[in-house]
Nucleic acid binder design. Structure first.
Lengths: 227, 227
DNA sequence: GGGCGGATATAAAGATTTTGTAAAGAACCT
DNA sequence: AGGTTCTTTACAAAATCTTTATATCCGCCC
C-alpha cells in the first residue's frame, strides 16, 4: 500500500466523524470531513481522496443521489455507511457504484479491514514493462526511451513526465494532476515548468515539434498523449 | 458484464447449494459446486472460475486455510459465506484475501449485488464509461470526444457545454440554466454566447451543421440534445 | 401572400488568455 | 571546474473568448 491514503468521510453526525477520525488515524489513514452532500462533492473534487466513506442519511440531499453524482467522475472506492439495512437499500447502493455497504452501528475493525480490501482491489495491478507508440518505445523498467531504435536521452524529470502521459494515453491530464504526480504537491502552480518540459520533450520525440502528434495540448486544461 | 460468468460454490450444506444454484442461475451465472476443501481446490484449479463463494465451515479443512491456499495463485474475487460473525473472523478473512464477507443467513439479492460488485471491480477499467450517440462518443472522465473514432478538438468551454447537454439528452435545458451551469451566475444574460458556442459545436460534431440532429434549438426556451 | 418583429445563426474582428520557445541564471552533481 | 539539469524571465505565437455586425428563420397579423 502507498503511504498515507486520504479518506474523505461524508457524514453529518459529529460522533461518527470523531470515532472514524480516531480509528482510521490509528491505521495511518489521513481523514478529512464533509458534513453534507454539497460539501462532500466539493471536497471530493478538490482533494481527490483515495477512498470515500459515505453516509446515506445526509441533511441536504439524498445519499444515493450523491453517490450517483460522484460516480460520474470519481473512480476510486466508495464505501457506504448507513443505518438503513433493507435489502433494497443495499442492493441499490451497490448497483449504483458503491464498493461496499456497512450498516450502522458497525464494528470499526471490520470497517478498517473492508477499507483495506477496497484499496487493495483498486490498486494498479499492472506493471507495464514497456509501451509502444509507432516508432517510439518507452521502457518503464529501465527508464529508456527509443525512437526508431535509437536511444533518446531524457533527464529523469522528462522521463517521468513522458511516462505519466504515456501511461494515460488517450486521456486528458490536467496541469494540476501532472504537476502533482511529477513534481509534487508544492508545485501545483508552476504551469510554466510544464510548458518548458513539454517543449523539450517535443523537440526530442516528435518528428515535427511544431506540429505535435504525440504530446497534444488541451488548451485551458492540460495535455494528452496520443489519441 | 461479460456473458455467463462461472461461479464456484464451496459449501457442504446441500440446502445452501440448492438455494444458490437457483438464485444465481436466475441471473445467468453458471454455478458449479464442491462439498469440501479438497474438492474445492481441485475444482478451482481445473475450472478457473470467475468468482468463488466459500463457506468457512467445511468438513475436512479450515475455510481460512483454504482461502490462503487459493490465494497463492487465484487472483479473482472470493466471497466468504459463513455463520461465524465475530469481528475477528471477518477481519481475518478479509485480510487473508477475501473480497467480501457475508454472514449466514444472507439475503440472496444482496449476495447477487455483492457478486456484481466483486466482478465489476475485477474488470479492466481501461474503457471508461462514455456516452454514445450514433457515431459520437463523449468520454466524460477522460474529457475526450470522438466522432466515428476520430478525436474532435473542443475547447474546455465547448466540452462543458456539450457534456451538459448530452448528460441531459432528450431534455430541454433553458438558456438560463445552461448559462448558469457552464459560465456561472454572472452570465445569465449572455444568451449570445450560447448561440456562438452552439454554432461552433454544430460545425464540429454535426454531419450537416445547417440541419442539426444532435443540438436542437427550442426556440424561445433553450436547447436540447438528441431525440 | 407580404411584411413585421423577435429570436436565432454565422462570420469575423478585436481583446484576452493561454501556450511555446529561447535563453540566461542558479543549483547540482561528480 | 565543467557539464548537466532545473528554474526563471521575457517575449512571440497561438488559441480562445467576447463583441459586433449582419443574415436568416419563423410565427403572426393584416
Amino acid at each position: 500500500m502507498k503511504e498515507n491514503m486520504n479518506i474523505l468521510i461524508i457524514d453529518d453526525e459529529v460522533q461518527i466523524r470523531r470515532l472514524l477520525e480516531i480509528s482510521l488515524s490509528a491505521y495511518e489513514f489521513n481523514t478529512f470531513f464533509a458534513e453534507n452532500g454539497k460539501q462532500g462533492l466539493v471536497a471530493a473534487a478538490t482533494h481527490h481522496p483515495d477512498l470515500i466513506l459515505l453516509d446515506l442519511g445526509l441533511p441536504d440531499m439524498d445519499g444515493l443521489e450523491l453517490l450517483v453524482r460522484l460516480r460520474e467522475w470519481y473512480t476510486k472506492p466508495i464505501i457506504i455507511l448507513s443505518v438503513r439495512n433493507s435489502e433494497e437499500d443495499i442492493v441499490n447502493a451497490l448497483d449504483k457504484g458503491a464498493n461496499d455497504y456497512l450498516t450502522k452501528p458497525f464494528r470499526s475493525g471490520e470497517l478498517i479491514a473492508r477499507i483495506r480490501v477496497a484499496i487493495r482491489s483498486g490498486e494498479e495491478r499492472k506493471d507495464t514493462p514497456s509501451l509502444e507508440f509507432g516508432d517510439l518505445s518507452i521502457d518503464m523498467i529501465n527508464h529508456v526511451v527509443r525512437k526508431s531504435g535509437d536511444i533518446v536521452k531524457l533527464t529523469s524529470t522528462e522521463f517521468s513526465l513522458l511516462a505519466l502521459l504515456a501511461k494515460n494515453s488517450g486521456r486528458v491530464l490536467t496541469h494540476q494532476f501532472i504537476l502533482k504526480e511529477v513534481w509534487g504537491y508544492g508545485y501545483l502552480e508552476q504551469t510554466q515548468y510544464l510548458r518548458v518540459f513539454i517543449a523539450q520533450l517535443r523537440k526530442k520525440i516528435e518528428d515535427n515539434p511544431a506540429n505535435p502528434v504525440l504530446l497534444i495540448t488541451e488548451s485551458g486544461i492540460g495535455y494528452r498523449f496520443g489519441n
